[in-house]
Nucleic acid binder design. Sequence first.
DNA 1: TATTGTTATACTCTATAACTATA
DNA 2: TATAGTTATAGAGTATAACAATA
Lengths: 137, 137
Amino acid sequence: MGEEYRIAHQVDRLMRRINVSLHQRIRPIDVDRLGPLGTMVLDVLADIEPAPIQKLNQKMARDKSQMTRTIKLLESKKLIVRDPSPEDGRTGILSLTPKGRTFVQEVRRAMSELMREVLEPITPEQREQLLELLKQL
Amino acid sequence: MGEEYRIAHQVDRLMRRINVSLHQRIRPIDVDRLGPLGTMVLDVLADIEPAPIQKLNQKMARDKSQMTRTIKLLESKKLIVRDPSPEDGRTGILSLTPKGRTFVQEVRRAMSELMREVLEPITPEQREQLLELLKQL
DNA sequence: TATTGTTATACTCTATAACTATA
DNA sequence: TATAGTTATAGAGTATAACAATA
């Protein structure tokens, strides 16, 4: 094709749409003011907990220092807890608190609703296809 | 599926990967310090020029005030020009200068190279499929 | 009255490097 | 020495609202 850059444009545009809509939908339920990043970190962590910080970093593809700050915020709001790792004294194992889990449920409800709107132009089979393609990347 | 939110996670992760790699690759050629956003605005504009600001806004899915600033930056670096619209006195028509076009070519070369790496795990047919799906959204 | 674009402000996210502690 | 995480700081991107000019 030689126009691979077009995929980058489309991904950017899609991500922007998702972020803007998500921001609007999340605000009323984001009583702890985690912001979009804090919300997403919690959401991603919910899939992999209990998990060392490093694993969360990989999934989020942000840099370490940013994750440090976000984790600290989530801890201070009592949404996650950090336990020492028995294997590696340098790292911590993150888990959600009950409060964190409840919030993630709300976030996912809002997010799935939003994504259903965004994905409305394509069929359920195409959605599966899209998810599979993205997972491979 | 009921797990539409997972697509949002994957899109976020992909976009992060693209942004980080792009930032590194663009820096050496971004002599005017446009940054990732300025670079992408110029890149997108190259596809639709000459275009009113509004059309660029739609394509970029950023808010107006941010685009105002970015356009001003690109203008000040002589990468684009703004001509008054004959139809609507409120808006301007944006076009790339020769300098802007040259820069876009370099950016696209770097971007396509990067995307080929990112897209390496999937076949060319799947790339087309992905682009088509994204376009529909 | 609605729309386009601008300005101003506060906030959030990002990149980078230097640092500490453990492996 | 290498790696995980932290801290500090500068810079880039974002959301919002108020505003002027034109439609």
